[in-house]
Structure formats: structure tokens, C-alpha cells
Amino acid sequence: MERTDLHWLALQLYRRLGTRELPTVREQGLSLWGYEVLTLLVDAPVRGQLELVDALELDKTKVMRIVDELEAAGHVTREQVSGDRRRRAVTITPGGRRAWRHTRRALAAIEDDLYARLPVEARDATRNGLLRLVEVLSAD
């Protein structure tokens, strides 16, 4: 039986795309989640740790491990927010920005290759359909 339910299809896409992208992010000393953190920091160069937790919708301890890895690699710095001993701000470093740019270009090439394998009329429809599904689920 060929499965076509959305959950299964999304899971297959997530797993297979991750498998294809992982070597690319590893070249820069990143994990896939580390790349996501850097992406958030490119958009807003300084964020509180809890802002990252909320934006990623992940467990706090997992996000702290990701930030620890990024800090050890020199991609981010973490500083105490003045006036609040419990809060820490995460800032992307110039090296983190370079790693993000290189990784973004390499991931875009992977995406371009995948889209190129689709018929022209299916490329925009696929991207737009996925965007709309994310919007619908985010609105619920």
C-alpha cells in the first residue's frame, strides 16, 4: 500500500531533506538546529535565550545545548543582560555570520537542484502549497 497521507509525506520530506542537508551544515561545524539558531540571529543579531526557545518551539534544555555548541564553535557569544542575572543575550559573531552565509548558499543549491527535478508548473505550486499548509497550521 502506497501511503499518501500528509503526516507520512511530511515525515519523509523532513528525514530525506535533513539527510541531504546535514553534510553541508556539518562542513561549517553546525547542526541543522544550529543553522536555524543562526538564521534567527541573522534576522535579529541579539536575542535572549528564551526568545530563541519560543521562536524554535523546542525544549529549553535542547536550545541551551544548541547555543552551547554554537558558542564553543565561535559562532555566537552569550552575555548576561544587565540588571537581570538570570537572562542571557545570544549574539551572532562575524564567524557565525560567515558560516551562516556559506551554509545558506549551499542549502539553496540543494533546494534548487530538488526543485529543478520537478516539472516547471509544479515548482511554485509545491512551494506555495507547503507555505499555505504551514500558515493554516500556524493559525490554528
Rank of each mutant, 00 (worst) to 15 (best):
E2F: 05
D5A: 00
L6H: 04
L9N: 02
Q12E: 15
Y14W: 13
L17D: 11
G18A: 04
R20H: 01
R20F: 02
L22H: 04
R26W: 00
E27S: 11
Q28W: 06
L32F: 08
L32N: 10
W33K: 12
G34S: 06
E36Q: 05
L38F: 02
P45H: 04
G48D: 14
L52G: 08
V53Q: 06
A55Q: 03
A55V: 00
L58V: 02
L58I: 01
L58P: 00
K60Q: 14
K60S: 11
K62I: 08
M64W: 14
M64C: 11
I66H: 10
E69R: 02
L70A: 01
A73R: 01
A73V: 01
T77C: 13
R78E: 11
D84K: 10
R85Y: 12
R86N: 11
R86Y: 12
R88Y: 13
T91F: 04
T91Y: 00
I92Q: 04
R98T: 07
A99R: 00
I110R: 09
I110E: 09
D113Q: 12
D113C: 05
L114Q: 10
L118G: 01
A122E: 12
D124L: 14
A125T: 15
T126Q: 05
G129E: 07
L130Y: 09
R132T: 13
L133K: 10
S138W: 05
A139K: 03
